[in-house]
Design a protein around this nucleic acid. Structure first.
Lengths: 330, 330
DNA sequence: TTGTATGCGTTATCAT
DNA sequence: ATGATAACGCATACAA
C-alpha cells in the first residue's frame, strides 16, 4: 500500500538518489527525469517516511510542551498558541501533562529526548532548575513560559501580573475613586502578592495612602467575593470601587452589590481579573484584566524556534503585558 | 554527549546485537555480560533513539488526536482523557487543531501518516466519511469520538445527550413538577434537538402532555436565560421548574429568578446542562447534567489501543451516559 | 550464549 | 545529470 522511494526508482528506472533529489527539489536532476518522478510520486500518493528522514537528517520537526494540565482553562489557551505558531513553521508539538509531578516531568523529558525532539517548552509548574541542568538539558533548546527559576537564567517568556493589577487600579483611580477595595486570594499565594503589589504601586504613583482595611485576603471563590463585599461595606468609610483579584471573586462581588440594591457602576464600580468565560455570566459586562495567554504560547514557540534555528536574536527574557478590558462595570 | 548501542558494544567489548538483547531484556545473554552492559548503559545514561527503533520495528507508540480546538472547554477535557490513558499504556499523543477546516484536517492526517503513527482519534468536527476512506485510512486504526458519520461504520464512542436531557427532566418530574419550562439554544442545532427529544421522552414516559408553550428556542447565552424566564412567567400558567439547556442559560434564568424576588428552589427549581465552571458562579449551587468528557477521551483511547493491538473485542459503537448532579437548585 | 549480516527508508558524499 | 555506497541507530534472522 505505502510506497517508498525505492519503488519509485524502480518504476521510473532511475536510482534512489535521483528520486530523493527530485522529490526534495534539489539541483542536479534533468527536467524530464524530474517530471517523470514527480508524476509517479503523485499518482501513487507517495509520502516520505519521516522516521527514516529524521534519522538520516539527525533532526526532527517536533517540539515538546510540558505543562501541568491541558484541561485547565489557562494552559489550554497557551497550548493553542504554541501549536498555532509551531504548525505555521512546519513543526508539530507533543503535549505532556505533568500534573506538577516531578517524576512525570522527568519521564516525559526523557521520552522527548529519546525521540530527538528539536526543543522543549516548559510551561508553568516547578521543576527546580538544577534538575533541568542535571538532565543534560543545557545543550538543548529550551524555553520557559510563565515559570521563573532561580540561579541559571534560561530563555523565558512571562506575563506581568503585577502590571495588570496596576492597570486595574489605575483605571479606577482615573475614574476619580480614591478608596478602592481589594479582594484577594490567600495571602501566601504569589498571585495575591503580585496583584497587591500592582495595587500599591498605582496608589503610590498618585500619592494616595495605602489603607490596609480596604484589602481583604480570602479565597479565589464567588463566595469570597460575596462576603468580601459585605465586609467592605461594614467599614466606616466604605469604598465605592472594588478590584476583585479574579473573575470568580468579581462575580460574587457583583451579586452582593445587586442584591444589596446598589447599581453598577453608578453606585459601585467593579474590576475583575482574568477575563474568563465567567465574565459572560456577569451582568453588567465586567471590566477586567485580560492576560495574553494565547500570545504567551505564540511567543514561547517563536523564541524556541529561533533558538532551534540558532537565530538567537531574541532577548533572554520577554515580558508580556496584560490588557485592561473596559466594559460596563466601571 | 548522547551514547548509542554501538558505543556501549565497544566499551564492553561485545557485539551490537548482544547489547540490543541485553537492553531489551531478551533471552540469550549471559547473566554477567548483561549486567556489565546494563551498568554501562546506566552509567552513561543511555537512551535508545526512538526514531531508529521505530524505523527498524516498523511501528511507533504515538497516536494522533484530531480535534477542532484544544483551547475549548469541552475538547481540552477530552484530550486530557486521551492522554491519560495513552500515557498509561506507553503511548504519546499528538494533538492537532483543525478548526473544523477540512484542508487542515487533511494536512494533519497526511503528516500523521508519514510519521507512521499507530492510530488516530477523530474528535468532534466533521470530515465526511467518504473522504476519510479516500485518504486510505480504512486500513488504519481509527476511532471516532463524538462524531457520527453516515455510510461506513467506524468504531465510535459517543455521549448520549438525549438521555442527559431525559434525566434532567425526569428529575424534575420526580420532584412533582408537571409543567417544566425548557430554554433551548437555536432550533436548528442538533444539541437543541437532542435535548428537546430527551425532554419529550421523559414527559411521554409519565404520560404528561407536551405543551409547546413551555419550550423556548433562544441562544446559548446568559441573556437568553434571563429573557426566557421572563417569557415563561408571562404564560397563563407559568412553570415552577425550568430546565436550561446549558449552564450559561441557567445562569441567566437563576439571575432573573432572584431579581424577581423568588427563591430557588422553594419557589422555582432550575436544572442546567454541562457542569462547567459557570456552575461555580451560580448561587445556589446548580443541579445540572454532567457529561463524561474525560471519560470520552479515556474510552476512545482505550478503543483505539485495543484496535492497534488487535484485541478487537470492544463493540463497534460505545455510548456514554451523562450524569445528573443534584445540588441545591432543585 | 554470542556474533554477523541485513534491513528499515532516507539523506548525503563520493565517483562517474 | 546520474548512480553507487555509506551512514543514521536499532532490531532480528541466521550462523557459529
Amino acid at each position: 500500500m505505502t510506497i517508498t522511494m525505492k519503488d519509485i526508482a524502480e518504476i521510473v528506472g532511475v536510482s534512489e538518489s535521483t528520486v530523493s533529489r527530485a522529490i526534495n527539489n534539489k539541483a542536479g536532476v534533468g527536467a524530464k527525469t524530474k517530471e517523470e518522478i514527480l508524476e509517479v510520486a503523485k499518482k501513487r500518493n507517495f509520502q516520505p517516511n519521516r522516521l527514516a528522514q529524521n534519522l538520516a537528517k539527525q533532526e526532527t520537526n517536533v517540539i515538546g510542551l510540558l505543562l501541568p494540565d491541558i484541561s485547565s482553562l489557562f494552559y489550554s489557551d497557551v497550548a493553542r498558541g504554541v501549536q498555532d505558531y509551531a504548525t505555521k513553521e512546519g513543526y508539530q508539538v507533543i503535549v505532556c501533562n505533568t500534573d506538577d509531578n516531578k517524576e512525570h516531568e522527568i519521564n516525559y523529558i526523557n521520552w522527548l529526548k529519546s525521540n530527538k525532539v528539536a526543543g522543549m517548552i516548559f510551561l508553568g509548574g516547578g521543576l527546580v532548575n538544577n534538575e533541568i541542568v542535571k538532565l543534560g538539558l543545557t545543550d538543548y533548546p529550551i524555553v520557559l513560559a510563565n515559570r521563573l527559576v532561580e540561579q541559571v537564567t534560561l530563555p523565558s517568556v512571562l506575563i506581568d501580573d503585577t502590571s495588570g493589577a496596576f492597570k486595574a487600579t489605575e483605571h479606577l483611580l482615573d475614574k476619580e475613586y480614591e478608596r478602592i477595595g481589594l479582594v484577594l486570594g490567600p495571602a501566601n499565594s504569589w498571585q495575591s502578592q503580585n496583584r497587591l503589589q500592582g495595587y500599591k504601586r498605582a496608589l503610590q504613583q498618585r500619592k494616595i495612602d495605602y489603607d490596609s482595611n480596604l484589602v481583604l485576603n480570602k479565597s479565589w471563590t464567588r463566595k469570597s467575593g460575596y462576603q468580601g463585599f459585605l465586609e467592605l461595606m461594614d467599614l466606616e468609610d466604605p469604598p465605592r470601587a472594588i478590584f476583585a483579584a479574579n473573575d470568580l471573586i468579581a462575580a460574587g462581588v457583583v451579586e452582593a452589590i445587586k442584591l444589596g440594591g446598589y447599581f453598577i457602576p453608578h453606585d459601585i464600580a467593579v474590576v475583575g481579573f482574568d477575563d474568563t468565560v465567567v465574565t459572560s455570566v456577569i451582568d453588567p459586562p465586567l471590566t477586567t484584566i485580560s492576560r495574553p495567554m494565547h500570545q504567551l504560547g505564540v511567543k514561547s514557540a517563536n523564541k524556541l524556534l529561533s533558538l532551534i534555528k540558532e537565530e538567537n536574536f531574541s532577548q533572554e527574557i520577554e515580558i508580556l503585558e496584560s490588557e485592561l478590558k473596559i466594559r460596563e462595570s466601571t
